[in-house]
């Protein structure tokens, strides 16, 4: 374009895409470490496998698309997707699930839609949904149990590694995710009875609470660095609470509000998934509505659905609605009496 002459502004800020990605990765580390501390080496091993396969998959599709490989890889977005997948997938799941998920995220969800910034869906969540519906068995039974609950030590690094690489299966104790577990149990037991079961003696949600707090810490870091805005996360919490508060009044049949907030992927989803800029809404109001929708859907799918956690499906459903939300949530521009909303220009506009 001939228009691309040198013109104002002549100075640029020091921000770069890769810096943003790297900070998000850094912000996810406390959560990853907390997961590894309570649930064993599986998460770290998974993350490494996911990152490597995501980077390789991106390199391959870039070559196929005849795009610069190294320059694109440098933006670290593939690494980020790998890390997000690593902390989402079950720690005892076999290696090929990681590879399939990462490859699908990179090739189908990201690059078939045009690459970085063009994807309609959140790559990590779409890939999670893919492996969850494709391999229901390993995806629901490969969750690890903290030592304080099972009474058995977590597998050593080499045991975990050979299990995940399918060299030698480790015969450890796995259980459903805390959310899933509580959901099934509360149908038969009262809340008091449930608190007496071995899984809950160590506390209502031992381990997972700290994991959520660690993700919260990372999220606050991102807010502080102004890499994300508060609208999405607050929207998600609001949406979730709007349903969870009234419905959890009966403690003997519903999950407590605190479990909704801190026993699943809620905090992770709020700060690391809902805030994914490419697949979320654009304006601040839009981001809030996007998060709110994710919150509502998450509650519904968790409570009345069959899946262990609902963030992924809720996010995917809201991803589809994001362009629509955008059209109705344009901010009011300076000097305009009201925001331009919808798909048509208002009559009186010039």
């Amino acid at each position: 374009m001939s228009l691309m002459q040198r013109s104002s502004p002549h100075v640029m800020g020091r921000n770069t895409t890769s810096r943003i990605m790297l900070w998000v990765i850094v912000a996810a580390l406390p959560g990853l470490l907390a997961l590894s501390y309570f649930y064993g080496w599986g998460y770290l091993i998974n993350t490494v496998i996911c990152v490597v396969s995501a980077v390789l998959a991106e390199a391959a599709i870039l070559m196929l698309r005849k795009r610069p490989v190294l320059k694109t890889l440098k933006d670290a977005s593939a690494v980020l997707t790998g890390v997000l997948l690593g902390v989402t997938l079950p720690p005892f799941a076999p290696w090929w699930i990681m590879v399939i998920a990462s490859g699908f995220a990179m090739v189908f969800v990201k690059h078939l839609y045009g690459g970085l910034g063009q994807n309609l869906f959140n790559p990590a969540m779409a890939a999670f949904a893919l492996v969850l519906i494709s391999f229901p068995l390993p995806m629901t039974t490969s969750w690890s149990t903290p030592e304080a609950i099972s009474g058995e030590p977590l597998p050593s690094f080499s045991q975990q590694l050979s299990h995940n690489l399918e060299w030698q299966a480790y015969d450890g104790i796995t259980m459903a995710t805390p959310l899933d577990h509580y959901k099934t149990k509360i149908k038969r037991l009262t809340a008091d009875e449930l608190a007496q079961t071995p899984e809950y003696v160590a506390g209502p949600f031992y381990g997972i609470l700290w994991v959520n707090l660690a993700f919260l810490l990372g999220g606050l870091l991102l807010l502080f660095l102004k890499i994300i805005s508060w609208h999405g996360p607050v929207g998600l919490f609001t949406g979730l609470l709007v349903l969870a508060l009234p419905f959890s009044a009966d403690a003997d049949s519903a999950m407590p509000v605190l479990m909704h907030l801190f026993a699943g992927a809620t905090v992770f989803g709020a700060f690391f998934i809902v805030t994914d800029p490419a697949s979320s809404a654009t304006s601040n109001r839009g981001k809030f509505i996007f998060g709110f929708g994710v919150g509502i859907l998450t509650y519904c799918i968790r409570t009345w659905g069959n899946f262990p956690d609902a963030i992924a499906f809720a996010v995917l459903l809201m991803n589809i609605s994001a362009p629509f939300i955008d059209h109705y949530t344009r901010p009011r521009t300076y000097g305009k009496p009201k925001p331009v909303s919808g798909y048509k220009l208002p009559e009186e506009s010039p």
Binding site: F108, L130, I133, S134, F135, P136
Partner: peptide, 15 residues
């Protein structure tokens, strides 16, 4: 082979 349900289900057909 453990089934790859995605391919069996309609979304797989679309892809």
């Amino acid at each position: 082979y453990s089934q790859f349900l995605f391919a069996v289900l309609p979304p797989g057909a679309f892809v």
